[in-house]
Amino acid sequence: MTDSPAPDSPVTDSPVPDGPAIENPYSPEPPGTADGPDRVERFSAEIADMALPGGAGSRDRALLWVGVALMASAIVVVIVAYVISHSTTNPLQQRDAIVAALIGLTLAVVGAALFVRYSMAQFLRFWMARLSFDSHTATDRLVDAMRKRD
């Protein structure tokens, strides 16, 4: 190859070893490819069947905010229950307050579950991007070190 290296990538153009020409074991024509009209027809059909957003993505976001809302309302319910139980000596009212507090607790658990479930995808996406970046940087460092050694 006589091409110049890409400026944005670590390049060491190691030469093809001399010697007898390496026979290409692969067929000259790409196998299994559709011809033009077939390919376009298949593409059109697949595009027609494709689900567009408005569906899963926005539903995930909505459920994430439902989770946040449930956790916030749970705090309010529990505080109200606490105030009720402290403002009366009537055992019936105190028991009602305990039930309200338990409902608040349930709301908090359900809200937290929804929040964790639907924020996880975003978190994992960030985490994968971070891993990919780290891996890229490590490779660059390795290639730099190899070039310096040569």
Binding site: M1, D3, S4, P5, A6, P7, S9, P10, V11, T12, D13, S14, V16, I22, N24, P25, Y26, T139, D140, V143, M146
Partner: peptide, 15 residues
């Protein structure tokens, strides 16, 4: 095919 097991970061820009 001749570089099938080579790390792609070490290929030339054209490759």
């Amino acid at each position: 095919a001749q570089r099938i097991d080579q790390t792609s970061g070490t290929l030339s820009g054209g490759q």
